[in-house]
Design a protein around this nucleic acid. Structure first.
Lengths: 229, 229
DNA sequence: GATAAAACATGATAATTATCAGCTTTTTTA
DNA sequence: TAAAAAAGCTGATAATTATCATGTTTTATC
């Protein structure tokens, strides 16, 4: 493997696209590539990552353990996304854990290289800044949803969110295989509650379920449920 | 009013402290100062702020309206904090509303000036970047709490958080006057539920209440409750 | 391919939380 | 300072959600 960053199309999907040809050549020389199998952990909560991952393919869940002992999925990361920038910038251990949801291909760029570019390439820094600003806005939205919406509303919202990000074409199922427990850990409820609500959505023909495959049949009604009607 | 930024000690509390003397002189010449009375709105959700507020004194709540029609307090902003950077960086209207909780004194710095310094002063940009990274981590923690903890746990957690940030000295009440509705909107519950839980905490001698004044009597037990014991 | 383990599913019940109603106290306003 | 409005409080009840128990289906492993 170990392809060249300058020729990698993935970088156009994130802040690395702001780097100059010379900078990319330098990164290319020190980055490492790796495959991560479904279920494997990219990094643990509390671990010093010492760099940034660039996701070339696959999806991973980013979780945090509550003091109650239950995992919460904070976000899903997919092809083109970076992970690890936040901890790198704060110069601290990761506050989150990342686990592959399907087989992944990722590149790892050591901390020093990223820091070098953050100091010298303002376009790159501003791009990372914008990413964090967007993440913060999304996190605020999630806080409001978690605090104010019912589990049913949150499930409807989550399904629409998944449709937006993981549905390749109409009439195709969502291109992400989440267990019922994963879904419960996204919306913040017990697995049984998530299963029950999925069943009721299926009964109302809002979705259809074939094993782990989810088809979104009626996004309009799901939207109304999500908004509280 | 209209004091000089170069001489203002508040700037040492936030990223503006990274600006050079020349930059501060420039900012000083274009900033405006204003008093905001308790209950007044600094900016609305959806409004273009076109700049950044630097809080010289007082506290404000930053809220977002849920589609359910209820306000959620996303965070509290106090002396030394900046507000508005996130929207400025994303170049979009504010996703949040800010309302003064007591009388405030704030400075407003126009967008162009901040952008100028973000482009030319890397220390300033990195400081803002670190702020956003910290905010994002805190937001992730709130998401997990909202999703996984009970209302009782969240109230205990909130009281400890308030103690940490607003208790000037032992045996003094929290130096922030929140209505019962505000407290409910922080923890994401109905006002009646918040009142009931406060009463029960009072009965158990974990806190004492005199009107809106809150005394934290037993932080250890509150900590245990927050963590689920 | 048989067996074990994990994931999925559903019912019964308990716990948590929201809602509504009515009352008291505090704050605001004229 | 009196009246009105807002905030605070409590009880009763309904709705939501969690937990436990148990059985089925799917997946993994030898």
């Amino acid at each position: 493997m170990s392809s060249r960053c300058e020729q990698c199309i993935i970088r156009q999907l994130n802040s690395l696209g702001e780097l100059t040809k010379d900078e990319l050549l330098r990164i290319s020389g020190c980055k490492t590539s790796q495959y991560v199998k479904k279920g494997e952990v990219l990094f643990e909560e509390g671990q010093y990552i010492n760099g940034v991952f660039c996701v070339k393919d696959g999806v991973c869940k980013v979780t945090k353990m509550s003091t109650n002992g239950r995992d919460q999925i904070v976000k899903l990361i997919k092809k083109g996304d970076l992970i690890g920038e936040r901890s790198l910038i704060s110069e601290e251990a990761s506050n989150l854990k990342a686990t592959a949801i399907n087989d992944m291909e990722v590149c790892f760029i050591p901390k020093e290289e990223i820091v070098k570019d953050l100091k010298s390439n303002n376009n790159f820094t501003m791009s990372i800044l914008k990413d964090l600003a967007t993440s913060l806005k999304e996190a605020d939205n999630v806080i409001v949803d978690m605090a104010q919406k019912t589990v049913k509303q949150r499930l409807a919202e989550t399904l629409l969110h998944l449709k937006k990000n993981y549905q390749v074409s109409e009439d195709k199922p969502l291109d992400i295989q989440l267990s019922r427990e994963d879904i419960a850990n996204i919306i913040g409820t017990a697995t049984e509650s998530a299963i029950r609500l999925l069943s009721s959505f299926k009964k109302e023909k809002l979705i259809s379920l074939k094993g782990k495959e989810i088809y979104i049949l009626d996004p309009q009604t799901l939207q109304q449920i999500a908004e509280g009607f």
